[in-house]
Simulated assay, not measured.
Amino acid sequence: MTTEYDALIVGGGQSGLAAAHHLRRRGLAVAIVEAGTEPVGSWPHYYDSLTLFSPAKYSSLPGLPFPGDPDQYPHRDEVVDYLRAYAEALDVDIHTGHRAEFVDHDGAGFHVRTHADAVFCAPRLIAATGTFGSPHLPALPGQDRFAGKLLHASDYRLPEDFAGQHVIVVGAGNSAVQIAVELAQAATVTLASRTPVKFAPQRPLRRDMHFWFTLTGIDSAPVGHLLRHPPTAPVFDTGRYRAAVSAGRPHARPMFTSLESDTAVWPDGSRTRVDTVILATGYTPHLPYLSGIDALTVDGRPRHWRGVSITHAGLGYLGLEWQRSLSSNSLRGVGRDAADLARRLHDLGR
């Protein structure tokens, strides 16, 4: 089966849906190719207690406000429901159950072949598959000798799964701290990081930080782009997480120097028995289907400038971290990037 469109989007999560909205507004016939059973991205696979750090009024895609109290911090399942409703309102073809296997480019257009042996063709292609499929797993000294479990944060769901264990959570960002604090209710938890955890107030001067991000321009291009790769990203906190870490639940320590059997060795020479290590070490772009057209670097990252490919006319990317701004890979920011990318790809046909 071969089907042709004006534009194809690989990935039906928040980035792909926002792209579809803006491409349709420009009159293009659009299709989304999505591996899952419904177009809600990776949200159903995140840990059960995940809550956004941005209030609902700052967490919408273009054209549909997030429902409910605008000052609430939406839960994972509320985001899934919102994305489901957003997809239903789009006037585009959404092909679920089609995982993109590889992409060909013949000079005039792109041909996306899926694992279901379907082929979709278009002169424009947006890669919007996010990062969840490619967790970053740094090599740990001694991990080949470690007898416990070594997991990524993408594998974490519930604290009860680790009841009675000694768990080390590796990382210093929002997810690492959120998981470690929750896990400390059911397990003995150490939060290990190469740099100390830094906290920033969630509501400075009684306003959510995203109010200030919007007011100052930090959350959008081009001002926010100047802050790319800050020395250490802070953990946004109402005071709960700082209090938990200060109380030793979890216990924060500098990164261990090695793993040995069922033991972690610390910089001061002390040793701790450990059952599980959870790596909250982030993700990298998930773009294996583009590996055959020389669009990626040797380490699999897209070769682009602010979302537009520098290797292939008509190819774009959405949802990349720091693509155009601080908020590029978030619900609150991807709509702005999608509008910019849709404009630039649409202009190719003029």
Rank of each mutant, 00 (worst) to 15 (best):
V274C: 13
L8A: 09
L50M: 15
L226N: 07
L348R: 13
V112H: 06
P288A: 02
Y156L: 10
V223P: 01
Q202H: 12
V177F: 11
P254L: 14
G173V: 07
E4Q: 12
R343V: 07
G239L: 08
D299I: 10
G292K: 14
H98D: 07
T129V: 08
D106R: 01
A116L: 14
R271K: 07
L61Q: 05
I293C: 11
R26E: 06
A233W: 08
R26A: 03
P288D: 07
D81P: 02
L287Y: 08
L320K: 02
P74S: 04
G307E: 03
L83N: 05
V197E: 00
Q202Y: 08
Y5I: 01
R124C: 04
V308I: 15
S291F: 00
E260Q: 13
F213Q: 01
I310V: 15
A89V: 01
V265F: 03
D219M: 06
T3M: 13
H115D: 13
L290V: 05
V40F: 11
R84M: 06
S193Q: 05
V277M: 04
S325Q: 14
V277E: 00
H105W: 10
H225R: 14
R194H: 10
G173A: 14
I126W: 03
G239M: 08
H346D: 10
G109E: 04
G239V: 10
R343P: 02
H111C: 00
E34T: 03
Q165K: 04
G68K: 11
F132S: 11
Y156S: 08
A116C: 08
Y5V: 03
S328E: 10
D6Y: 08
Y58G: 06
R273T: 15
T263E: 08
F162G: 09
R253M: 05
R301K: 12
L259P: 01
A221Q: 04
Q323N: 14
G16E: 13
A339P: 08
V197G: 02
R24I: 00
S325P: 00
R124H: 08
D91M: 01
P234N: 08
D275K: 04
A221F: 15
G68V: 03
P250L: 10
F256N: 13
P74K: 12
L8M: 05
D81F: 00
P74M: 06
A342G: 03
L90N: 11
H152F: 05
G109K: 03
A342C: 04
H105E: 13
P65I: 14
I126A: 01
R344K: 14
H225W: 13
Y289R: 06
I32L: 13
A35W: 00
T114A: 03
L23Y: 11
D117N: 09
S220Y: 06
V334N: 06
G314A: 07
N174K: 09
S59M: 12
V245E: 00
D347P: 02
A252K: 07
R324L: 09
Q72A: 09
A18K: 13
D268K: 11
R124F: 02
V30Q: 08
V197S: 02
V277D: 01
L348D: 05
G130L: 03
L137S: 08
Q14H: 15
S330A: 12
T238M: 02
V197H: 03
G292S: 12
V170I: 12
R343T: 13
D69Y: 11
L183D: 09
D337T: 06
V40Q: 09
H105C: 14
E182A: 07
V334Y: 07
S270F: 00
R242G: 09
R324D: 05
S328V: 02
P302V: 03
G164A: 10
G164W: 02
H136F: 13
R301V: 01
